[in-house]
Nucleic acid binder design. Structure first.
Lengths: 196, 196
DNA sequence: CGCTCGTTTGAGAGGACTCAAGGTAGGTGG
DNA sequence: CCACCTACCTTGAGTCCTCTCAAACGAGCG
């Protein structure tokens, strides 16, 4: 989802520079803004009782995030945290709703975005119930590449810890699985960098 | 999501009686219809490489299902199978899109539905990465009750197998976890029937 | 009664997790 | 240019517990 920045500004949106590690919203709080990334990276994540982190998704330049709770009367189920220094533009919830009324196309593309996300969630649920760590990781990598239309042997822009948090495993397990995947030729690891 | 049946019929939707076990659509096939349940129950599920089933969701009377792929050019990521004899109404994809144009309210409520589902998926991802079976099940039951606004000590309308397939465990594990939950007083089991 | 579908119980194996420690790369500052 | 720091990666050993397989029990229905 991406709304033209000029339109957002016309509607009174404000931009803000933020630092790596800053929190945009937290689990349990009530949604007030529509957010879109002008520059930088955001992770949306939550924690289970053990304190284990699960990354619902990582959003990059141009993408919006955290919209669903705006439409239903529920607090955020997750946290949004900056992975890098970023510039974020945000628009007040009610203004955003007005904008939706004015521009039916935005509603339509939001439907598309949500559809896409639901699709991805269906796939990632699939990943989460797969028992073999190798399979989980390969499924995740496949999905990642499909999402960004990448060809073979791309550098994977995730740390082992992030992969672990995305597929629901522990770092050590991810590392050991990646080793086996390297041995069987499915991935390449050059100087600790992962390629697929 | 629920569209008025008369409107659907006006637009040329057709209703059909179907039998328990029938498949409405299958993983990998291309979406052609919007579906809504007039009577009965549908499970949307997929299978991982081990053949283990994962239930993405169970839909009941009045609900629509399988809409997201209509909006993006992707095949279904899951199968839809009838859990009971049912009556299903379906509308051709392109007609459905036209209907969306005519009735902005439908688009709006679809956004709400999708938001709800994304919210639930966020929660269920949370469930899937939780290690303790007891916790998984309790989280699932909590979510189920919240979704339907139920109070305490409700009969849970799922078989152990279905719970297992919903939270990503094996039947036996679910049964043993339920036993422990019964012992600790968190659930009640009367004559094999589960209450929470 | 006899079928079917769902539930229960037991024993054993495998493998992810945990904890603890050490290694490596890239950036910073003296 | 080197020492240091931090974030990330890697390895090992041991435990725990889910999964697997196999078998039996229970309830509902024609």
């Amino acid at each position: 989802m991406q709304i033209n920045i000029d339109i957002l500004l016309t509607y009174g949106a404000t931009t803000k520079r933020c630092l790596k590690g800053e929190t945009i919203f937290t689990e349990g709080s009530n949604p007030v803004y529509y957010y879109q990334i002008i520059e930088g990276e955001v992770k949306v994540c939550s924690y289970n009782n053990d304190g284990k982190e699960f990354i619902q998704g990582i959003f990059r330049k141009g993408q919006s995030f955290g919209e669903p709770p705006l439409f239903i009367d529920k607090p955020y189920p997750s946290n949004a945290i900056l992975l890098t220094d970023s510039i974020i533009i945000r628009l007040e919830k009610y203004t955003f709703m007005g904008l939706l009324d004015e521009y039916p196309d935005i509603g339509r593309s939001l439907l598309k975005t949500f559809s896409c996300r639901l699709y991805n969630k269906a796939v990632s649920a699939q990943i989460l119930i797969t028992s073999s760590p190798e399979e989980r990781i390969v499924m995740f990598l496949d999905e990642f590449k499909k999402q960004y239309n990448l060809r073979s042997k791309q550098k994977i822009p995730y740390t082992r810890q992030q992969i672990a948090d995305l597929v629901g495993l522990r770092v050590e397990t991810v590392i050991r699985a990646l080793m086996r995947l390297k041995d069987s030729g499915k991935v390449e690891i050059i100087n600790h960098r992962l390629f697929y």
